[in-house]
Amino acid sequence: MEAAENIMPVESASGSLWHRPAFKQFILVVPALLALFLLFVYPISSILIKSLFSPEFTLKHYLYFLKTPLYSRVLWITFQISVLSTLSALVVGYPIAYVLRRARPGVRNFFLLAITLSFMISLLVRNYSWIIVLQRSGVVNSVLTYLGLIDSPFKLLHNKLGVMVGMTHIFVPYIVFPIYSVMMGIDLNLEKAAQNLGASRWQTFWRISFPLSLPGIGAGALLVFIMALGFFITPALLGGRKEQMISNLIQIQVVDLLNWPFASALSVILLLATLVVFAIYNRYLGVERLWGGVKT
């Protein structure tokens, strides 16, 4: 790109606005900027304003958050569930990406298609399917009981385990694709070279393949973690009484209690918490890696 620009004659700044390349490029981004403003900047600012002014400036909604233990406790639960489901999606998704990278193209395409297809099944259908599989009289317990392996059914549903299974299932594709695309950019000859120099398979993995795939892990994990923070249908259907999410409390404030300023404050707090995670990620891994760049 840089070389090309150097060779091409740069138009003089004296040309009319229309003929400046920078302006032409700007015109192309205008629709995106408008959409970003209308769908992102405007709503988020109005939520921020609603949480701070009613109608005079006040911090009372944020103070209420601080002095009522329920909300910070549920925010903490939300973080725990998000971290655990991200880790579990990583544990399931990483080997899939690893194997796909090394599979024959036919096999690889088949499985990539299968993973893409799972995006197309509605969230509710997937949740209810897990209920059928995991409930007391469900597939897993019936089979185990039939085989005589257990006397009384396992409690697989309406607890943290149920939530983990359901959320992992939903998040795995989001984890697989970023890791897979980073892995596709890794030269497999590096592994051969390492082994040629006497590294065991395990050493090759830990010291060559794994570190090189880290940007993919970071991108996938961040994407999934931020999605998980806003989840509430899956925890509501598959979880027990303790799996309460902050988004559920926000919804109650909006729909049932009409306390929109406080709901806005809760949303802003959730957003800030998300930004903190993003900042930590940026500090240690670098945001540029999200779009495939290299941290400088």
Binding site: P69, L70, R241, K242, Q244, L249, I252, D256, L257, N259
Partner: peptide
């Protein structure tokens, strides 16, 4: 009473 009792309920249930 819905607002205060919902808060109390959610605190109780977790």
């Amino acid at each position: 009473n819905l607002a205060p009792l919902t808060e109390k309920w959610k605190t109780w249930i977790i």
